[in-house]
Write a protein that binds this DNA or RNA. Structure first.
Length: 716
RNA sequence: GGACGGAUAGCUCAGUGGUAGAGCGCUGCAUUCACAUUGCAGAUGCCGUGGGUUCAAAUCCCUCUCCGUCCACCA
């Protein structure tokens, strides 16, 4: 089937409104939420698979008589978009600094339009029967309102706070990121043994560290309790070899007695564990690494240097002074956290950020999460465990592209942008009309940061339906019937949608949660641009057609199961299903074009089983019934690979190879069965191969305008 | 260190208590036949290891090995 014909049918369906949901219809709802692709991202094989699965379920449910809402959207993808856009600006010699926030945003929106227009048409691929008129962009007004309501409610419920906290900072993105936005890279570095002089009693305490450049920010040394060698120093002071400050020697059982020397330098400003220990011991917090990834200027010895330069220089210096013995230095392989998006080494440092207290949300989430039917069900456990061990969610990002934090400070009374309840700050979407309660004037200035993309995406099941307004869409389609996701965003997105949905709408956001597997290359590596191992779904479509590409993808659609694929394996499978399509065309040619003059034709009004008594007819009708049952139950349990498998086997090897051959000597008599079995087969196949089934169905005796509107075959 | 998943034909993978399956690849035969983008026939597997439950195990249970993924504050 060529792409012109595909386009023709797609247009036919869309123009007839077959993709549209109808909240007013009395039919029961079946809502499917398309995971919004990133604005800047090309669609890859994983998207193609998601779309194919979503579309099969949607078409199946429509044929079963449901009022289907398949709702598409686009994600603004904060960090990713901003990175791409800034690169483009740099080519024109422009930058954020030069433009300023307002001008930058204006250009960013223009850029968004350009990008959107150039790629959005490709999102309609794979025959996705989405209700395009309802497409939602994550920054549009509707979503803004919902996001504001979310923020405001958290604020009123006292679940929102702002504070200096140790965060994972990506110097390149210039923003805090969440733990779950980080990756780890195995790196071979050096482990240095640094001697700190103990004051008063004489002697040294040695710590092992991979990060000597943070020594200027050391504020204590911690040893594990009852350290055989060092416990005599407990309570004494040591001398910081760089700053020469006196720092206390403390004990903590979180220090691993088997690592290094059993003593740990405490740097609360640049390490999460140290931060926790420092807080409990009321230690000062010093910072030597700035948000630009360089050592702060007024640091001794290494001020102004990049981190790796600083490390080299400080090691040389400490070795010269006898604090590091070169022969004691070890090679050390460990995992270094890097930013998932730009692969820059992440620096833990102190920053002012907004947080949500997640405990209450997690509690409610855990109580109700069992209502979600996870496919495969192992995800219930995985996600529940994560929710159980939830920590507060840092929702602010130092970006410009996103929902700006709806908080206003009185510039006069609150120049440091501190947060208290209703004095010199306000939570408001637009500039407050009121005056400041402290100075009775209006000098409002908005918080500089924007919200984490997932803060708004987490509300996607509600914001897309017009919440917080009590719309007919919310009433009818919430909770959604079906959601699909890649496993990699199960915490970032899925877990949060569940908690937020329960918090704001008091119900789970979706009844069925389907996780597909990850497609990898033949060596088991992820597809990535840098490896160049990606497979372009459009190339497959051009070569083999959309129907065949979809069928090839269904063979990989087993819930939660990763698959390995190459262009070659995809070609092999797609080719097979292209051949299957050819087979269908030839079956149609045989049944329709070459029908004998005296053939009776299919009569929709009477039961075919009762009229056709030949054993071959009875046999094929029986097998068809069995196939209807199988396909229906496989679709009900979202096992698309089994559904397509049994259809393929039935149509090709039972119907075409055996039954059709057997009718050649009683051709005219068998015509009604040929027509009936083929038409029914096409209807069963339509969710998976929408184009060719429409094309051929139209050529058979039929009622109704489209196979999309046909009733799902019944086995009774 | 925890949690989860995988190991089945040359390759990519289904199956998951009752005589080993598909696609691609391979071998042989068939062309005035709806279809060579085909049909028919065929070869190829101690279903990772060791044990257990059962009349019966690739399938359920336990052990081990190897691979993979996720989680965790790996200095």
């Amino acid at each position: 089937m060529d792409s012109n014909k595909e386009e023709k049918w797609y247009k036919f369906w869309e123009e007839n409104g077959f993709f549209r949901a109808n909240p007013k219809s009395p039919s029961p709802p079946y809502g499917l939420l398309v995971p919004p692709p990133n604005l800047t991202g090309d669609l890859h094989l994983g998207h193609a698979m998601q779309h194919s699965i979503l579309d099969a379920i949607a078409r199946f449910k429509r044929m079963q008589g449901f009022d289907v809402l398949l709702l598409p959207g686009v994600d603004h993808a904060g960090i990713q978009f901003e990175g791409t856009f800034d690169k483009c600006l740099a080519k024109e010699g422009l930058s954020k600094q030069k433009l300023g926030r307002d001008e930058w945003l204006k250009k960013a929106w223009q850029f968004k339009e350009e990008v959107y227009n150039s790629v959005s048409s490709t999102w309609r691929f794979m025959g996705l029967s989405a209700d395009w008129e309802r497409e939602v962009f994550t920054l549009e007004e509707k979503v803004q309102k919902a996001t504001f309501e979310e923020f405001k409610t958290f604020w009123e419920q006292d679940l929102l706070y702002k504070g200096a906290y140790i965060v994972q900072w990506c110097p390149k993105c210039g923003s805090a990121i969440e733990d779950i936005e980080m990756e780890y890279e195995e790196r071979k570095e050096k482990l240095y043994f640094v001697r700190y002089k103990v004051s008063g009693v004489g002697g040294y305490i040695t710590v092992a560290t991979a990060r000597p450049e943070t020594i200027p920010a050391d504020v204590a040394i911690a040893i594990y309790p009852n350290h055989p060698e060092f416990s005599k120093f407990y309570g004494k002071q040591a001398e910081n070899p760089i700053t020469h400050n006196e720092i206390p020697i403390i004990q903590d059982e979180r220090v691993d007695k088997n690592f290094g020397t059993g003593a740990l330098k405490i740097t609360p400003g640049h390490d999460l564990l140290d931060y926790a220990i420092g807080k409990e011991n009321n230690l000062r917090i010093l910072q030597v690494i700035g948000k630009d990834g360089r050592i702060v200027e007024d640091t001794q010895i290494i001020g102004g240097l990049k981190v790796d330069e600083a490390r080299a220089k400080i090691v040389t210096y400490l070795a010269e002074k006898g604090h590091i013995l070169v022969e004691e230095t070890k090679d050390y392989i460990h995992s270094v956290p890097v930013c998932e998006r730009c692969k820059t080494t992440v620096e833990p440092l102190i920053s002012e950020e907004w947080f949500i207290k997640m405990k209450p949300l997690a509690q409610r989430g855990l109580k109700k999460i069992k209502k979600v039917n996870f496919v495969p069900k192992t995800f219930l456990k995985i996600i529940s465990l994560w929710i159980k061990e939830i920590h507060d969610w840092s929702i602010s990002r130092s970006l410009w592209w996103g929902h700006r934090i709806p908080v206003w400070y009185c510039q006069k009374c609150n120049p440091n942008h501190l947060v208290g309840k209703d004095k010199d700050m306000m939570v408001s979407m637009d500039e407050p009309g009121k005056t400041c309660q402290s100075c009775s004037q209006k000098h409002w200035i908005q918080d500089e940061q924007v919200l984490d993309t997932w803060f708004s995406s987490g509300l996607w099941p509600l914001s897309t339906l017009g919440w917080p307004s009590d719309t007919k869409e919310v009433k009818k389609y919430y909770p959604w019937s079906f959601e699909i996701s890649a496993p990699e965003i199960k915490f970032l997105w899925i877990a949060r949608m569940i908690m937020l949905g329960l918090w704001f709408a008091d119900d789970i956001p979706f009844k069925n949660m389907f996780f597909h597997g990850m497609l990898r290359d033949l060596q088991g590596r992820k597809f990535s641009k840098s490896l160049g191992n990606g497979i372009d779904p459009n190339e497959l479509r051009n070569q083999w057609g959309t129907d065949a590409t979809r069928m090839a993808l269904y063979t990989y659609s087993i819930p939660g199961r990763d698959g390995r694929a190459s262009k070659q394996t995809m070609d092999e499978r797609a080719k097979n299903f292209r051949n299957f399509g050819t087979k269908l065309i030839n079956i149609a040619r045989f049944i329709v074009d070459l029908a004998p003059q005296d053939a009776r034709h299919l009569d929709n009004n009477s039961s075919i089983e009762n009229k056709m008594n030949h054993p071959d007819d009875q046999a094929i009708l029986g097998k068809l019934k069995k196939t209807i049952k199988q396909v229906t139950s496989n679709l009900d349990s979202f096992q698309l690979h089994l559904a397509t498998d049994s259809l393929y086997e039935f149509i090709w090897h039972q119907f075409a190879d055996k039954y059709i051959e057997s009718t050649k000597n009683r051709r005219a008599e068998a015509q009604p069965v040929l027509e009936y079995v083929f038409k029914t087969s096409l209807e069963l196949l339509h969710p998976f191969m929408p184009f060719i089934t429409e094309e051929l169905w139209q050529r058979l005796p039929h009622t109704g305008k489209s196979i999309m509107l046909a009733n799902w075959p019944s086995a009774t």
